[in-house]
Design a protein around this nucleic acid. Structure first.
Ligand code: MN
Ligand code: MN
Ligand code: MN
Ligand code: MN
Lengths: 219, 219
DNA sequence: AAAAATTTTTAAGCTTACTTAAAAATTAAT
DNA sequence: ATTAATTTTTAAGTAAGCTTAAAAATTTTT
């Protein structure tokens, strides 16, 4: 399948899993940076290939075949990220950019070799789960955005859900990395700000960031 | 530039360097598996982009800009081959197939990281030279096809110039690998066959193979 | 329940990268 | 030097993936 097809299917899958899920063509179009006319067009073509269900004005739904394709691409994407992150000294943003392209030109054989080399990792460097070769995610996600964390508790960063360069640069600079421990000292509910300490440094984050940083309670 | 453009430019370059050089659209078309009409079409488009010189019925010639592009892609191709060959246990044919796709989706940054990781290798696993980041090949090639080797002498395999799976399987099976030493025992000029020994095994090769295997004299 | 605003779809058109079939030019053979 | 064979070019057409602009349907607001 073409890169355009794969990105489209992937966008639907990601939209359904994370975000509030408006899976109509217009919203998918926004994520892909194309017109909604193009997205409607593509939706019809993919429906003809049995990758999704399309009915005028309704939400798009991946078929089982479509979901499998999405998982296969996401697997390759996250394996590339994990691989490039480990092998070379590349930033979270850079590995994402490379993976966005490489994911479409990677054989299952190569993906499996990478997975094996890495010891079949369960998570990529952003903390997102890596589907196995059968397209399954076996881990269960109990994390929640930092905006919902309680003051006084410590947490482990479990995911950084963005592809913005500045966000990652900020995170890197302040040691906000996958797996690191943080302590929330205050939640300013009205101002939607969160005060926390990382490695003995206190920082104040606004909602733009605290909804992108996911954490798990340290049981 | 698109994958189609890059493959076209690369095909012209490769045609001019190795083979007897008929660089007219029809011959390039054959190598790429497209119609000559498509190749003529593409040639005109690339001429408009100053990647090559096109005149009706004449041979295609890369401009300096075109040559630079070809070298950049070939560099990425061969770095991928070297990298995949080293990292994973993949055959010469498999690494070529993967490289053929990955070469078009690789940033200069990533290519440089790979080169650095590998210690800036001068040759890929087929024995082909890897251009540096400036698009230059600094090594000089003194090798010649095995078909032209003299009986009684020993040689070092310097290149395996094919992308055929069966050819590589045969080579792998008989230890005909880049860098290995062989001894030519007889040249059957009339039958265009070459008898040689590799690792104490004697084999007889026909011209189909002896023109693909390049060697250097052991001074 | 209308009216207004927003979103989705349709329609028409563009570029890239191909195809086949024919016409035109070149190259090889007599 | 013609003729024949081969190759290249032109012409016409297709599919994928886009665009913008308009029409149609949905959703929100009043
Ligand atoms: Mn992508
Ligand atoms: Mn990721
Ligand atoms: Mn290629
Ligand atoms: Mn090679």
């Amino acid at each position: 399948m073409s890169t355009a097809t794969e990105n489209f299917v992937k966008a639907i899958y990601n939209n359904n899993s994370h975000d509030a899920h408006n899976t109509k063509p217009g919203n998918i179009a926004k994520k892909l940076g194309i017109s909604s006319a193009a997205a409607t067009d593509m939706a019809k073509k993919l429906a003809a290939k049995d990758l999704l269900n399309y009915q005028k004005y309704q939400e798009l739904q991946l078929t089982e075949k479509g979901r499998k394709m999405a998982m296969n691409i996401i697997r390759k994407h996250r394996l590339w990220e994990a691989f490039l992150f480990k092998m070379f000294d590349m930033s979270l943003h850079d590995i994402h950019k490379e993976a966005e392209l490489l994911e479409h030109q990677t054989s299952d054989l190569l993906a499996n070799k990478m997975s094996e080399y890495l010891g079949h990792p369960k998570f990529d460097p952003h903390g997102d789960p890596i589907p196995n070769a059968h397209g399954e995610i076996t881990t269960t996600d109990t994390s929640f955005p930092l905006s919902q964390a309680a003051a006084g508790n410590t947490y482990i960063i479990s995911r950084l859900t963005s592809d913005d360069k500045e966000f990652f640069e900020f995170c890197a600079q302040h040691k906000l990395k996958y797996g690191h421990e943080i302590k929330v000292s205050k939640q300013f509910k009205n101002n939607k700000m969160t005060e926390l300490s990382v490695h003995n440094n206190t920082i104040l984050l606004n909602e733009d960031f605290t909804t992108l940083i996911y954490v798990n309670s340290t049981k």
